[in-house]
Each structure stands twice: as C-alpha cells, then as structure tokens.
Amino acid sequence: MGFLRFKRKLYSGNVAKERLKLLIYSERVNCPPDVLNHIQLEILQVVQKYMEIDTQNSSVQIIQENKSNSMYRMPRLYANIPIKTIQTIKE
C-alpha cells in the first residue's frame, strides 16, 4: 500500500497541476522564479541565525487560493521550513 501511495504522487495529472500552480502564481504577481530563489536564500539565511533548519526540504512559494473571500484571493508568500533544533542564542 505504501508503494501504491508513493506511485500516486507521480501521476502526471498531479505533476502538471502542481507545476502550473507554482508557475502561474508567480507570473500573476510578476515575480520571476530567480527572484523567488533569491528571496528563499535570504529568508533561509535569516532563519538559520536563530535555529537549525532542514534547508534541503525548505521551500518558498507564492500561492493563491480561489476562494470568494477577497483576503484569500490575494497572492501570498508561503515559506515551508522544517526546523531541526531551536538554539537559544545568548548575546
């Protein structure tokens, strides 16, 4: 079953949808992928000052939901950063 679930993720219909979402949302706000990459790099650098994070599995994306509520229709910057440990930094 685990194998089946893994395979399901790779169905090309889903792949297409996810690729399009990333592309279209960044195009709507006129933010080219390389700008988004720079933003991601800098955000990760800042966060790394305070905690140990999993940079490999981090992502910064622009997302947008087609909800009638106008607040949710606005594009949003969404950062997904797994935390390994939180260091307490003493000055």
Binding site: Y11, S12, G13, A16, K17, L20, Q64, N66
Partner: peptide
C-alpha cells in the same frame, strides 16, 4: 483523467479563477 494522467475539470477550476 480516470487514470490520473490528465488534469480533471476540478484541477483546472482550482488553478483558473
């Protein structure tokens, strides 16, 4: 669509507002 190899109507509606 049934085989998951094409975006469904719902998928397209989800992307285009």
């Amino acid at each position: 669509v049934r085989r998951g190899e094409m975006m469904s109507i719902e998928d397209v509606m989800d992307i285009l507002p």
